[in-house]
């Protein structure tokens, strides 16, 4: 099949498949909203989990659905919450009254910068998107310069000005002392214009210790967070496995495991033949 013919066939295939998918989903959502949801959700959830065994068609399918659906999801959300209300709503307030804005002609500027952004799709005029990027970079820089200075530097330094001797509380005294020493020594570790030798080296080593404790603590929290998400998913699968949900997750899991097993045996067989 020549490339041109194939292009036409492929586009036709996409159109037909999309139409069929939408019809199927709409039928399912319309008639069995909850139960159908459990089936779809189970297939996708277990599809992603199957990656733990190895990269396989179920995972690939779920992952590719994810990429496509999430891109369209973000576009829809962004368009309806922002462009529809804030842009059209200000440029054409009569036609788009839902924004509740009055006419403001200056909003032609973000529209133009936005269109410039899209020019990246056409390589020959892609450079013009730099103008839009410049606006974003400038705004970010102005906001961040002040924001980070205040919250990351000033506020943090202010709270480190702790009394090293707290009358009547040995524990507070020790804690404050450790905090001041920890911050100073770890900052010294991030000092680049002097070699870490002698006292400098010793102190910055102490700084590393504090950094490592900090990372260990983060890791501990990270484990906690990830396990929580896993619990959330398992709880979902358990719900989807109840009789009222048609035991969707159980059925899907059994089918997936069977297919993967058969596949594994086949692979083993062909490997032996070779």
């Amino acid at each position: 099949m020549s490339r041109d013919v194939w292009t036409v066939v492929a586009l036709g295939m996409i159109a037909v498949l999309t139409a069929l998918t939408v019809m199927f989903l709409s039928w399912g959502i319309g008639n069995h909203s909850v139960g159908f949801g459990f089936w779809v959700g189970s297939v996708l959830t277990l599809g992603i989990f199957s990656y733990l065994y190895k990269d396989n068609p179920f995972y690939k399918f779920a992952e590719h659905v994810f990429v496509g659906v999430s891109a369209a999801y973000w576009i829809a959300i962004a368009y309806w919450t922002q462009i529809d209300r804030n842009l059209w709503g200000r440029l054409l307030p009569e036609q788009f009254p839902q924004g509740g804005h009055e006419f403001n002609g200056f909003y032609i500027i973000p529209l133009i910068l936005g269109i410039f952004m899209l020019c990246r799709l056409i390589p020959s005029i892609g450079w013009i998107s730099r103008w839009s990027l410049a606006f974003i970079v400038g705004l970010y820089a102005g906001l961040r310069m002040y924001g980070f200075l205040q919250s990351n530097i000033m506020e943090q330094a202010r709270d480190t000005l702790r009394p090293i001797i707290v009358p009547g509380s040995l524990v507070d005294s020790i804690n404050n002392f450790l905090l001041v020493v920890g911050v100073l020594s770890a900052l010294l570790y991030f000092f680049f214009s002097k070699e870490h030798k002698g006292v400098f080296g010793v102190v910055s080593r102490v700084g590393i210790f504090f950094l490592m404790i900090s990372f260990g603590a983060s890791f501990g929290f990270a484990v906690m967070g990830r396990i929580s998400l896993l619990i959330g998913r398992f709880d979902y699968l358990i719900q989807a496995g109840t009789p009222s949900a048609g035991r969707a997750s159980v059925v899907v899991a059994v089918i997936m495991i069977l297919v993967l097993l058969i596949q594994a045996f086949k692979d083993k067989g062909s490997a032996e033949e070779a």
């Binding site: 506020e155 906690m224 929580s228």
Partner: peptide, 26 residues
Amino acid sequence: VTAIQVNEVIPYVKGGQIKGILAGMS
């Protein structure tokens, strides 16, 4: 916040800029 966020946020809590923190599922 999520457990992962805690370390990023805790300095602000200790700095008194935030009143307490709920850390992750626990």
